[in-house]
Design a protein around this nucleic acid. Structure first.
Length: 288
DNA sequence: CATCCGTGGAA
DNA sequence: TTTCCAAGGAT
């Protein structure tokens, strides 16, 4: 098996972007918040929101004392607002069950709402320096290409963790850097389309490149159209509540902003079901 | 295992 | 203009 770690680590030490959460003093809470925000939201949009979030809630306990609706409001337009709710619940769990300290072991992290295989290990590795495989979409693509010769990774599976574990350096510090380096390579060089192989530190040992860049097929499912979707309707209602004074609005007013009555009612009902909104006395509001 | 869940920028 | 994609997780 080719050694990916040595050239990747050297490349990372030389060229890695200077991102806020890579500051050694950033802290576990900041890293946890950043990982929540980075779930499906691009780095450039996360950075300003992350700074504002940590300024308002510098600790898990501070966020735990706020209302869920305050978290949804502060989340702004990062997308997938249920993540704001999950982060708030995680903060409550940390305050109540972990003395206000972000836990270090993977099982405790996995027990937090909104924390899955990726986020749990990312916190354990990047905040605490422990040795675990961290697998995100970038890492899966880098391994699929460099090791398996595939143009795109298959769907995520628990097996991904074992695959990353196999190529992970033995010692903690290089293992942590290798995890970050694989993600960084996928983010800036080994990108989903138009990979920049001319600046790739492992191009010479890349199975996909050495095979002549075969199109090995793509199992990725096309994202459903957003325009006119229920998701867009939900987004419009929530955006309205975020902007409204006291974060509440008469349901009649909310109704006027989405033309399809059936779809609008579905949006409102599902927002309530998800805990992203509350209704009473003809008013709709962010959760208190 | 498939589907659902936002939003905006780039190709 | 449309399509693709972005440090996933819950159900």
């Amino acid at each position: 098996m080719s050694d990916l770690a040595t050239p990747l680590i050297a490349w990372y030490r030389e060229t890695a972007r200077d991102l806020p959460w890579r500051d050694p003093d950033f802290g576990a809470w900041g890293i946890l918040v950043s990982e929540f925000m980075l779930q499906q939201t691009p780095v450039a949009r996360v950075i300003p929101r992350l700074e504002a979030w940590l300024e308002r809630w510098p600790t898990p306990a501070a966020l735990a004392k706020a209302s869920p609706g305050a978290a949804v409001e502060q989340w702004a337009n990062l997308g997938y607002p249920r993540r704001a709710l999950w982060l708030h619940r995680a903060a409550v769990q940390i305050a109540e069950q972990h003395g206000g300290v972000v836990p270090r072991d993977v099982d405790s992290l996995l027990a937090l709402t909104g924390v899955g295989d990726y986020t749990a290990r990312a916190v354990a590795v990047f905040a605490y320096g422990d040795r675990h495989p961290v697998v995100d979409t970038n890492t899966r693509r880098v391994l699929a290409r460099s090791l398996d010769g595939q143009s795109q990774p298959g769907p995520p599976s628990p097996n991904d963790l074992a695959a990353m574990a196999e190529v992970l350096p033995r010692d903690e510090e290089p293992a942590a850097v290798f995890n970050a380096a694989a993600m960084e390579l996928g983010a800036v060089v080994c990108t989903a389309r138009a990979a920049k192989c001319e600046s790739c530190p492992i191009a010479h040992i890349c199975a996909w490149r050495n095979a002549g860049y075969p199109d090995t097929g793509d199992r990725r499912r096309r994202q459903a159209a957003y325009a006119g979707s229920d998701r867009q309707a939900r987004g419009a209602v929530l955006q309205h509540l975020r902007a409204a004074s006291s974060h509440e609005s008469a349901i009649e007013t909310v109704a006027a902003m989405w033309p399809d009555a059936l779809q609008r009612d579905r949006a409102i009902d599902s927002l309530i079901a998800d805990g992203l909104a509350e209704a009473s006395d003809g008013m709709l509001r962010l959760p208190r």
